[in-house]
Design a protein around this nucleic acid. Structure first.
Length: 507
RNA sequence: UCUCCCUUAGCUCAGUUGGUUAGAGCACCUGACUGUUAAUCAGGGUGUCCAAGGUUCAAGUCCUUGAGGGAGAGCCA
């Protein structure tokens, strides 16, 4: 019997095939078993009918437990109602490996339980979809840079010194010396760019920040392009072209995954079609404080109307809960009661989220109004800024004090550095940070002193300015933050197969 | 490092002003139902109420300390 993967079933309509997979869910009727199987490439409902297969195979199907691995054979039919659009009329079923009391059921579980069972959680439909999008994203990123004539390079993971002195590093042993796990491949990227013209790194990055937030990992993957003969303007053009390419490609290739994730992809069309707002830091601060309007509204006005909407939503949901509870009290059938109880639970969770927003929006308003010129943008400030545009927002020309030592000083205003941050919409915040690099040897040496970094460790880097220095620029993109935003996942821990974060080293 | 919240059955949770024998759904098992979409319906039993100490006639419930987890701030991609 010919074997097939679920993703290729369109070539097997009306034919009999064998599929290897796992049972993900099961429903039953008299003389009928509906097995929902997955094989890694998709999902398929397989119908086992007592009349077709006989008593022995039917019993096998009836007692099959969740996540048992099987070899299943049958006729493939088109059926638009089913997941994936196909269905199998089963003629044979073999059990490869039975699963006993699989811990993750088709009902809700808590975060801690799921994280402890991450090795199994990856089999679930949502996690499957996220990992598939991640895969597509990685491929699209490589495609983009290869098409643009970039050379991929691997930067070292062991490093002898910090790139940005402020960040905490993971120390490790390197023979008789102390080495640190890399927190950026950028300096090495600059060296390689002088050899290749345009390069990009794609590798793991480690930061020992004791951050317990939804946007932080201790180990994450970063893409860092670096281009010779590039200024910050060209850099921003490239970033915009890059993000437009990514969202367009991923939308085309992952529609099934996005439907599982219930991700509305309309915003990707807007992003691919419209020009990204580019704000100087000064202008971003004015907008944030409510001194400058966007589309006729200030941030304060926008947030206050958001706040009112939140209050109204909370009230509506409380009313809906009351009504459902009344209905249950009046006495309904068990099925209806379960349905209503589920609805109430969902509403309660939604209210929790809304209460969180209700608590937080006034704080955002206050922090935006009182924003101090010269500071870096905080998490809420980023959310507020992007809320005004519903597009990725580029903020450039920053006060040089908040940026890294290698950032190029603005010729027109020595207080500014030619860096750029790209803020993702929908509350996701900074996904890209980059800028033009300092080429002035003396300024660079001064900055290394200022940041109290060990000069001898940077001699090789200074050589890049001594031998044929050119204007150059680049940026860094956090893959997991990108995946989180593209999939509209709340927490970054679901965007990488086995997250390493503060308080989590297993499994 | 700081602030707030949580910890009750294998899992998700409810448990009123402290008051008798701590509950529900799911998972699991048995049966019913010939097209189910988290199928449904009937039946079946399970607890170190996170730990230690305290208040009280009486603690899952109140207090103190500790452990684990979550959300946020700072820092950052």
């Amino acid at each position: 019997m010919e074997k097939a993967r679920i993703q290729d079933l369109k070539d097997f309509i009306g034919k009999e095939v064998t599929i290897n997979g796992w049972l993900t869910n099961k429903r039953s009727g008299k003389g009928l078993e509906f097995l929902i199987i997955r094989d890694g490439s998709g999902f398929l409902q397989c119908v086992v009918s007592l009349d077709n297969v006989g008593e022995e195979i039917f019993q096998r199907a009836k007692t099959l437990s969740q996540e048992s691995s099987i070899e299943i054979t049958g006729l493939i039919l088109e059926d638009e109602r089913q997941i994936g659009g196909f269905e199998m009329q089963v003629s044979d079923l073999k059990v490869i490996g039975a699963a006993n009391a699989y811990p993750i059921t088709n009902k809700p579980h808590g975060v801690e339980f799921l994280m402890d069972n991450r090795h199994l959680w990856l089999r679930s439909r949502r996690q499957w979809a996220i990992m598939r999008v991640r895969n597509r994203l990685i491929f699209a990123i490589h495609n983009f840079f290869q098409q643009e004539g970039f050379v991929q390079m691997d930067a070292p993971i062991f490093t002898g010194n910090a790139v940005e002195g402020t960040t905490t590093l993971f120390g490790t042993e390197f023979y008789d010396e102390t080495a640190y796990l890399t927190q950026s491949g950028q300096l090495y990227g600059e060296a390689m760019a002088m050899a290749m013209g345009k390069i990009y790194t794609f590798g793991p990055t480690f930061r020992a920040e004791k951050s317990k937030t939804r946007r932080h990992l201790s180990e994450f993957w970063m893409i860092e392009p670096e281009m010779a003969f590039y200024n910050n303007e060209m850099n921003m053009d490239l970033i915009e072209k890059f993000i437009k390419y990514i969202v367009k490609t991923v939308k085309e290739q992952s529609s099934f995954e996005f439907s599982i994730l219930e991700r509305d992809t309309d915003i990707f069309d807007k992003i691919a079609g419209e020009k990204f707002p580019r704000l100087t830091y000064d202008q971003a601060v004015r907008i944030l404080r409510g001194e400058e309007k966007v589309n006729g509204k200030t941030t304060i006005e926008t947030l206050e109307s958001d706040f009112k909407n939140v209050l109204r939503d909370i009230e509506d949901k409380h009313k809906a809960i009351e009504e459902a509870e009344k209905e249950i009290k009046a006495g309904v059938k068990k099925g209806k009661r379960n349905y209503l109880q589920n609805k109430i639970d969902t509403l309660k969770n939604e209210i929790k989220d809304l209460e969180e927003r209700k608590r937080v929006i006034p704080q955002w308003i206050e922090s935006a109004q009182n924003f101090k010129y010269g500071n870096d943008l905080g998490g809420s400030d980023e959310t507020v800024l992007t809320r005004m545009f519903d597009l990725p927002v580029m903020v450039y020309n920053w006060p040089h004090e908040v940026k890294a030592f290698y950032m190029k000083r603005d010729e027109k205003d020595p207080n500014l550095a030619k860096g750029v941050d790209v803020l993702a919409p929908e509350g996701y915040g900074e996904i890209v940070g980059g800028g033009e690099r300092e080429t002035d040897l003396d300024l660079l040496i001064g900055k290394i002193h200022e940041h109290k970094l060990p000069m001898e460790a940077f001699e090789w880097y200074l050589d890049l300015r001594r031998y044929g220095s050119v204007p150059h620029a680049g940026f860094g993109l956090g893959l997991e933050r990108m995946v989180a935003w593209i999939c509209k996942i709340k927490h970054i821990r679901e965007t990488i197969p086995f997250p390493r974060m503060y308080g989590r080293l297993f499994p």
